[in-house]
Design a protein around this nucleic acid. Structure first.
Length: 850
DNA sequence: TTAGGGTTAG
């Protein structure tokens, strides 16, 4: 009666009134193992308890094995506990069950008990035990297992052997893996494949390819796994020739049809090698295009500058309902990161959140944080980061790197501190980012602490990135002696290493050292690249080293780098800085392609050299050619409007910025707007922009001060100065130009002198020639010519033409012919060809004649 | 029972 609803098969039904015999049980249980029916196994378990068959150790042990096989390890454990004396099979089965469920500790406790009872561990159980060591990368236990296996006489078993090779490879002990392989009496295809995989896994791709050749020479037919690994090795090595050979072999032997992994691996290999056309061709010919082949192709696109295509393929997958998993989303987000596409990032963010990937896979969260920081959207990146259930060292590194890239070095270092407090150990990637943060904010003390830590951990010599980052940190902090000392310690100086040193010199305006290092680099026979050339050109530009700059220009032409975007733009900039506009224009016109930076450079060049109309014309042309102006472009054209006092044009540009580029309204643009409005006399508009500033920098105050000063609103200027000081924003070099100019216009000689003194005494600012000239003007306009002359004679700096002209004009106004003549002689000494000097002297005589 | 595919940070 009890058995009727259970619908068991006939041997049991026949003998309903009797308890089944041991033989019958054995038959039923083995039948059930063949069927692997969970429901059937559980019913048998219930029934066995009721009919007392567990008193029989053999049958009980069989039931344990059955329950493990259908995945009910816990139930198997219950049966096992009720057995008086479970046999080896039951023990082995339980070990396998726990190992499969990744219950490491329970597995090993059971194993130890089993050994204490001197029961025989099966090869199956050893394979399971070794796999768990491999999975946990537990080398200590793995090693123990290896010696137990040998003691047990299973050292030459092919299954155990291959598993041992895999275990050592997973733990990073390639030599030990090879030893196991060498000791195997018969090396089957799986053993070869495992050793090939072991080499690929441990970065020994060349050996992997050698092994494939050896395997074939010994007449062992490569398995799909071996071919997949070999293709991966070709991709890693960048060996397209070997890759194509293997591809041809696979095609010839018709292996593509036997295994989809092979086709996918071919796509991946070509994608990694950047041979995207062939990758696409193989992909198109695949019988099945699944998420693996699609993601493989997407990887190729993102790694070789075609992130748009990666996203297009990603969208295609959705249209064709090809399943997508976490890895697919990681690839798509990498593409978003490369393209700095905040909209698509957000779209994918919604999708990965909906599907729970952010919580299931830390890598998805990591790449999402990275994508948001690349878009400059730090708030969003932090929001994702804080919401992550688990944060690994990559999560922290991405965040630290993001802060540094967004010029938030200090916050980057705060995150580093928090990371350590949370017990995450930084690796070399993390240190590189932290050192960059130190360099960016010139936090030399912390940088030195990191340097010491890195040395202590032995990371300094292990990694070229670390080496570069440490030297870069010192160079960026301006600690050149230290940077140079370390630089010299490392014997190999590649181009990147030189560039790091040179960029530090450039950042700190040590332009002579830029040129010296460039020469030294060439003496060492290290070839400069486009990055080196841009640094050196900038150094020449700032140094006014025309001869050197032109020589570097011809070197660049000789090595055929004139078509490089960055170099072309830097050349234009260099000639503009020197005031050689025809040369700048010639380079600009010959650029094979122009970008927004090229246009901005030429516009800035016009502004710098006083060609304001040309600057505005170029701006119109830039817009006509559909280039997007940057904050820098707007700052330049607003300056042009400001100098030309083009109210309407300036207002038009302001409107345009607000409509089309709201994000461009950064502090540089806002300050330029204040300057433009102030100089055009639209002080109300200038004040409106000023009031709206979230942070008022010295430049913002200066723009308004200069505006008030130039339009004669001197009282307002003094009032603003007062506010500036109260807001704890101290006036700087430029502020004092505005202040002194205002005093000159107001004829406030005493007040002006007081400000001039306060500049050095109260604010510690060393006045330059421009300030001194302002004071000369202050005296001159107030009719105090002799004071002006006295100042000129006692100046700590050599006066220039402007200084002499300033007092010469005052002499004309005052009709002081003697002083005028004296100043004329000085002015001629400075520049005898300046017509202005002669005109002013002429006017003095004309005035005297009247 | 053993081996193999697409993934993130400097």
């Amino acid at each position: 009666m009890l058995l009727m609803p259970m619908k068991l098969s006939h041997p049991l039904q026949k003998s309903q009134m009797q308890l089944p015999s041991v033989k019958t049980w054995e038959y039923i249980l083995s039948n059930c193992r063949k069927k692997r029916s969970l429901a059937y196994a559980l019913r048998l378990n219930t029934y066995s308890g009721m009919c007392g068959v567990l008193a029989n150790n053999y049958i009980g042990s069989l039931l344990v094995s059955l329950l493990v096989e259908v995945g009910c390890t816990e139930t198997a454990q219950h049966v096992f506990d009720r057995l008086a004396d479970a046999n080896d099979c039951a023990w082995n089965a339980l070990i396998i069950g726990y190992a499969r469920a990744l219950e490491t500790e329970r597995t090993f406790i059971l194993y130890k008990k089993m050994q204490a009872l001197t029961l025989q561990t099966s090869t199956y159980a050893y394979v399971a035990l070794l796999k768990i060591c491999s999975r946990m990368k537990d080398m200590d236990r793995g090693h123990q297992m290896h010696s137990d296996v040998v003691d047990r006489g299973l050292g030459q078993d092919p299954f155990v052997g291959s598993t041992l090779i895999g275990m050592y490879a997973e733990c990073g002990f390639l030599e030990k893996a090879k030893n196991v392989f060498d000791k195997l009496p018969t090396k089957d295809a799986v053993a070869w494949s495992t050793l090939i995989a072991a080499n690929v896994k441990n970065g020994n791709e060349e050996e992997a390819l050698n092994l494939l050749a050896k395997m074939q020479m010994q007449g062992v037919i490569p398995t799909a796994a071996a071919l997949v690994c070999a293709l991966k090795a070709c991709g890693c090595l960048g060996d397209s020739k070997k890759g194509q050979e293997i591809h041809a072999d696979i095609a010839r032997l018709g292996l593509l049809a036997i295994d989809t992994d092979i086709g996918n691996s071919i796509v991946y290999m070509y994608a990694t090698l950047g041979m995207l056309a062939i990758a696409q061709e193989v992909f198109a010919a695949l019988d099945v295009r699944d998420r693996f082949s699609c993601t493989a192709l997407m990887t190729g696109y993102t790694e070789h500058g075609h992130s748009e295509d990666a996203l297009a393929l990603f969208d295609c997958m959705q249209l064709e309902t090809i399943s997508q998993d976490a890895v697919t989303f990681i690839c798509a987000l990498t593409a978003c990161r490369n393209l700095q596409d905040s909209e698509k990032t957000q779209e994918i963010h919604v999708e990965v959140a909906r599907r729970g990937f952010i919580h299931k896979d830390v890598n998805v969260g990591n790449v999402l944080v990275d994508a948001y920081t690349a878009c400059g959207w730090l708030a969003k990146a932090v929001e994702v980061f804080e919401s992550l259930p688990v944060r690994d060292v990559v999560s922290w590194t991405v965040l630290i790197s993001g802060f540094t890239k967004c010029n938030e070095g200090e916050r980057a270092l705060q995150k580093f501190e928090r990371m350590e407090q949370e017990g995450i150990v930084p690796n070399s990637h993390t240190y590189v980012c932290a050192l960059q943060a130190c360099g960016s904010i010139e936090e030399e003390e912390q940088g030195q602490v990191f340097h010491a830590e890195i040395s202590r951990k032995g990371l300094l010599d292990s990694d070229v990135f670390i080496r570069n980052a440490v030297v870069g940190m010192y160079a960026n902090c301006g600690l050149f002696a230290k940077a140079r000392e370390l630089f010299d310690q490392f014997k190999i100086h590649d181009t990147v290493f030189w560039n790091i040193l040179i960029s530090g010199y450039l950042k700190h305006n040590c332009n002579m050292q830029v040129l010296d290092s460039f020469r030294e680099m060439q003496n060492e026979n290290t070839k400069p690249n486009s990055v080196t050339y841009t640094y050196v050109l900038k150094g020449c530009a700032l140094l006014g080293a025309v001869w050197d700059g032109q020589r570097v220009h011809s070197d660049i032409a000789r090595v055929g780098l004139t078509e490089d975007f960055d170099i072309g733009n830097t050349l234009v900039d260099m000639y503009c800085i020197w005031g050689l506009l025809p040369e700048a224009l010639q380079v600009f016109k010959l650029l094979p392609e122009r970008d927004a930076v090229s246009w901005t450079t030429i516009i800035a060049g016009y502004v710098r050299n006083g060609y304001m109309e040309d600057a505005l014309d170029s701006f119109d042309q830039m817009l006509n050619e559909w280039f997007s102006p940057s904050a820098m472009t707007f700052a330049c054209v607003l300056k042009a409007c400001s100098v030309l006092a083009l109210k309407g044009r300036g207002q038009g540009i302001h409107t345009g910025i607000c409509i089309y580029y709201p994000l461009e309204l950064d502090s540089v643009v806002r300050n330029a707007l204040i300057d433009m409005y102030a100089r055009c006399g639209l002080l109300k508009d200038a004040e409106r922009v000023f009031v709206q500033l979230p942070v008022k920098e010295a430049a913002s105050w200066n723009a308004l001060i200069a505006g008030y000063s130039q339009t004669g609103k001197n009282d307002q200027m003094l009032c603003l100065l007062d506010q500036m000081i109260k807001s704890e924003q101290y006036p700087d070099v430029i502020s004092f130009i505005g202040i002194l100019t205002a005093c000159t216009h107001m004829g406030l000689v005493e007040q002006g002198i007081l400000f001039f003194r306060a500049m050095s005494e109260d604010y510690g600012i060393l006045g330059n020639l421009e300030h001194l000239t302002c004071v000369v003007d202050l005296f001159g306009r107030a009719g105090q010519l002799s004071n002006g002359m006295l100042l000129i004679q006692k100046m700590p700096r050599h006066p220039n033409l402007v200084t002499f002209h300033t007092l010469l004009s005052s002499s004309r106004r005052e009709g002081n012919m003697d002083l005028g003549l004296e100043l004329f002689v000085h002015a001629i000494e400075v520049d005898e060809g300046n017509t202005g000097t002669y005109v002013t002297l002429f006017n003095i005589y004309v005035g005297a004649g009247d």
